[in-house]
Amino acid sequence: MEHIGFGALPYDFAHLLGGVMLLLSFTLLTQRRISATIATYAAQALTLAVAACWQGWVQNEPALYVTGAIAFVAKGVFIPLMLQRSLARLHLRGAREEAMGIFASMALGVALVVLSIMVVLPTTMQAGALTREDLALALSVVLLGLLMMITRRTAFTQVIGFMSLENGLILAAVGVAGMPLVVELSVAVLVLVGFVVFGAFLKRMDTHFHSLDTSVLDQVASENR
């Protein structure tokens, strides 16, 4: 692939999609209503689907369309629907949850983005601009997902943080030219199986505690130490 930079459509559009994903990561960080969090996650997954297909077209790599399709069907539609349904079953539809203050989490989020740019850009000087920017954006999405898992207390939103982190991983994988299908497959396996596991956990926790607050679980652990 020739050198692609600002002003070339493949680069600009990929950059735009990565930027939208990062923006949605920030939205996830500050969103308090659980059902809105799920919707935001779905939007991020759909953006990822478009980004994967765009890379498939730019790199002329049909396998990436499969990655895009998986992101669209499983993560953009199926998982969010399932989560919304179990939320309704638990009568938590309008529920809000406590989290770290908006200013603090935004500040931490911005710091993490700065960190990932400072880490990635100098280390990738020789790589093409597309790869560099994509990797920086992907790492930012990964780190923000991690931050969301740390700042949230309910299992539901931690799971969403985890899945958003996975979106970042796939964004990184699709941005690298010619990466063998193995990774796309592996990530798909992870997401599908991971969801089954999470589903099982949520169901069990539901039957045990009638609450999804993991701090209840920590209490159980400390009593038994």
Binding site: A127, A138, V142, L169, A172, M179, F201, H208, T214, L217
Partner: peptide, 29 residues
Amino acid sequence: NAIEASWKFFIICGVGIAMALFGTVVLYL
């Protein structure tokens, strides 16, 4: 307790393994 333990196991190792995948992508690059 077993549920708490496996939840913690999954979350921590899930994040760990996600970092390893990112590392794999970077190594490929």
